[in-house]
């Protein structure tokens, strides 16, 4: 883009980001707030694209806007179902405790303090070229050509390993919300797609494209923008689509195969790390084997990330409409 047009576009993008962020906070309707949050994520992804951080843009679009948005929509709809049930039982409806103005002011001061601290930290940063040069110098030894993948899986593999374990911990926390009698059931609500309906057709049509795109994103991650997290998110979406279209039921949480898929990535990663520890450094990859090792770890991570994200969206194993012990089960326990 030429100078003036590019500046105009960037200014407009900044205004849209700020506008969407403000709307997400200001809108009183919860669902509307989530919608604006998703719109905000899409604009931020565009901003990363303008900054030529394509890896971050992909991640923001897939995880920040897409997956987080779906999780929030799920939370809002559960909240609405809970609220309408309470309204049925109690004509007065739910009464949220009024927020005192002292609490509001305290929140505002806290948020302003954190924001100010961050701004101060940023302004007082010493001028530095960052680690770009160091990464570029050592890129040849990393086994991959994409500097972002080199940092994520080689130079700072430690962070990525912990991230994959954090995802697993989140799923375990979610599953721990299940009632005892629901344990071992399929996670999430029952799906109501009509066989042969629009959703079922969509669920047959899209997965081949999605699967190809997901695997491509992982494979190309070694040389170009892409990687296990982006590809895994696409694959999770494909799996969710197949389940929502009623083509395949969600796996039972007690399934051994599912458990292996969930831990394959972290396990492979730790295994490679320990082998590195025996050879000298924990998570150190010898240059000669770096590329195959990175691809192996990425393959395992992709499987685990896809499975974990999809199951996070599905929710805890539950019976009926999943509204907890007050609600009588609509289907008898199997």
């Amino acid at each position: 883009m030429s100078g003036l047009a590019a500046t105009g576009f960037d200014l407009m993008l900044c205004a849209l980001i700020l506008g969407a962020a403000l709307a997400a906070i200001a809108v009183r309707d919860l669902f509307g707030a989530v919608v604006f949050f998703i719109v905000y994520g899409v604009f931020v992804a565009l901003a990363w694209l303008r900054l030529e951080a394509i890896d971050v843009a992909l991640t923001e679009a897939a995880l920040g806007a897409g997956l987080t948005g779906v999780l929030m929509i799920g939370a809002v709809s559960r909240l609405e179902r809970l609220t309408s049930r309470d309204q049925d039982q109690d004509a007065a409806g739910p009464q949220s405790p009024p927020t005192s103005s002292a609490a509001r002011i305290a929140t505002m001061v806290g948020a302003a303090g954190i924001g100010g601290g961050l701004a101060w930290g940023f302004i007082t940063l010493p001028p530095s070229a960052g680690l770009q040069l160091a990464v570029a110098e050592n890129l040849a030894a990393s086994g991959v050509e994409n500097p972002v993948t080199a940092v994520l899986l080689n130079f700072r593999g430690w962070d990525t390993l912990l991230e994959s374990i954090v995802l697993l911990a989140a799923l375990i926390a979610l599953w721990s919300l299940a009632r005892d009698q629901d344990w071992g059931r399929r996670p999430g609500l029952r799906q109501h797609a009509r066989p042969g309906g629009v959703m079922a057709t969509f669920g047959r049509l899209l997965p081949p494209f999605g699967f190809l795109l997901g695997v491509y994103l992982v494979w190309t991650g070694s040389a170009q923008p892409g990687g296990a997290f982006q590809g895994g998110t696409v694959l999770a979406a494909v799996w969710l689509l197949v389940m929502m279209a009623g083509l395949k039921a969600a796996p039972r949480v007690s399934s051994t195969r599912l458990r292996w898929a969930l831990i394959a990535g972290p396990l492979l990663f730790i295994g490679v790390g320990l082998a590195g520890a025996v050879a000298g450094t924990f998570l150190g990859l010898p240059t000669a084997y770096a590329k195959p090792l990175i691809l192996t770890i990425e393959a395992g991570l992709t499987l685990s990330i896809a499975a974990t994200l999809a199951l996070l969206v599905l929710g805890a194993p539950m019976a009926g409409d999943g509204l907890g012990p007050d609600q009588p089960d609509k289907e008898p326990a199997r």
């Binding site: 629009v198 969509f202 494209f209």
Partner: peptide, 15 residues
């Protein structure tokens, strides 16, 4: 892909 996705979503929302 947008045609397919938009068409499907429209059908589902309408239903």
């Amino acid at each position: 892909l947008t045609l397919v996705a938009a068409g499907t979503t429209a059908q589902l929302v309408a239903r």
